[in-house]
Amino acid sequence: MLSIKDLHVRVGEAEIIKGLSLDVPAGEVHAIMGPNGAGKSTLSYALAGRPGYEVTAGSASLDGDDLLALDPSERAAKGVFLSFQYPLEIPGVPGLTFLRTALNAQRKARGDEEVSAPAFLKLVRAQAAALKIDFEMLKRPLNVGFSGGEKKRMEILQMAVLSPRLLILDETDSGLDIDALRIVSEGVNAMRSPDRAMLVITHYQRLLDYIKPDRVHVLADGRIAASGGPELALQLEAEGYDKYAKAAA
């Protein structure tokens, strides 16, 4: 489903991703682990199309469609969803308005009809309840004054409503207490399906106790330094990233 080949990404003057190749088949959850500064967030931003993240070589495609040729909103309409490590505050735009605008923009881009207001509200109510989000909160400007945990739950709510095909979770566990981590993980697990792929980016093994990966990759110095099954995460937790950092240096 997601196929990345020899990807090089430059941010400003610095090359951060230096020839990364990765395949995530439909239905699978792949974890990307690595030390700080390895390029984990750069990879997620490059896939989402953030300005300033310049792909200098290589390719990234979703179901054979070249992602890198698309505008960020077009990538979203194709099914790419990035859950931000630090979700942005959107002053003046209620969560419901933002989400409905996004959903309808995606549907329009795909040639589908706009979702009706009652159908939209029904969908959001159900998903908000599952994530234990007070519906009233969605009438407030998105993420403004929300706690770290509330913002992360809001990310998962958006993900559930937009129903993407490629889910990229960037450090979704950061800033979450144990209860919030469980609720967020249940929300993510509910989205696992044979026609979806997930990329779970995390520094700690903790999240992977909740969201069980099919494959684990170690990202060090802009490349995949090692790949393995779920046991690799446990090994990293025990041994740390030192040996990869050294190998890269």
Binding site: R50, P51, D71, P72, A76, L88, A102, A109
Partner: peptide
């Protein structure tokens, strides 16, 4: 600009994202 990218990453085209945030302002 980060808020604009955030909105775009959710599927809202750039011009629409800018108008939305300006209107909110």
């Amino acid at each position: 600009e980060e808020a604009i990218f955030y909105a775009r990453s959710r599927g809202i085209p750039e011009a629409e994202a800018r108008a939305m945030l300006t209107q909110a302002f």
